[in-house]
Design a protein around this nucleic acid. Sequence first.
DNA 1: CCGCAACGTTACAGTCATGTCAAGGTTCAC
DNA 2: GTGAACCTTGACATGACTGTAACGTTGCGG
Lengths: 134, 134
Amino acid sequence: MKIGELAKRTEVPTRMLRYYEEQGLITPTRQPNGYREYDEYLVDRVRKIRGLLDSGIPTRIIGSMLPCLNQPQEIVVADPDPELREMLVRERDRMTERIALLEHHCHAITRYIDAMDRSLTATTESAYRNDPRP
Amino acid sequence: MKIGELAKRTEVPTRMLRYYEEQGLITPTRQPNGYREYDEYLVDRVRKIRGLLDSGIPTRIIGSMLPCLNQPQEIVVADPDPELREMLVRERDRMTERIALLEHHCHAITRYIDAMDRSLTATTESAYRNDPRP
DNA sequence: CCGCAACGTTACAGTCATGTCAAGGTTCAC
DNA sequence: GTGAACCTTGACATGACTGTAACGTTGCGG
């Protein structure tokens, strides 16, 4: 498929797809006219790249991380590189830290929103019901 | 306190403290010699800024978000701005999405590390015990 | 066949949170 | 008074985007 279709299917702008290619994360083939040609399996790959980037992992690391996430059912590691393992442990630990932090702030913000809502329902009778929290 | 001490106590480089000031997130006073003078309460504020930035929230938003996180015990909102509320809801939702994503990848990576370890203990007898997972 | 919209290409500039470095002023201990 | 340790501003670099300009390709209607 061409870049536009991939962009639509992955919701990643074409600009970014070209950028990921520049960073060596995906390598589409080229049609005779110079257009990029993307294989089906790249849809999934691009989605993973986005997920990892959104998780705060830099492209440089994503490159060696991606193969680890191809887990059909049973993970079989042929040649476990101790350096890679160390990197993965380090990144995973950073991720769990980030999760804790995010949850903390998430709760704080939720509490604040609730306080806003309480102050509203206290003054004006039942307004702003566009996002009620159970 | 001067910038160096604040940097040490918050573990935020002086470069960043000056940057946060530039972005209007903190406003230290100045000593007669031009040195920045930081109040005690800024220690906590800087830590919150860092936490929010690490959570992927841009400085521009942090500015209006910070007061919401000053929650001694009981939150009282004087004048609940609907726009602010909307922004907070949006950001919080983005945060929960990010949390889910992070957890997903975190598990995937952990599974992969475990697979590496299994493959290792299978071949070489009990090596790489520097990070045992229960 | 022409025109033109829709899509593709490269290349260069700008942003945001950082890092790093240079050139210079201030403080303080020895 | 000299040097180390600290502070100041300013400039440039980087990683991950993001926008836009300038231009080639494709396909369709008149």
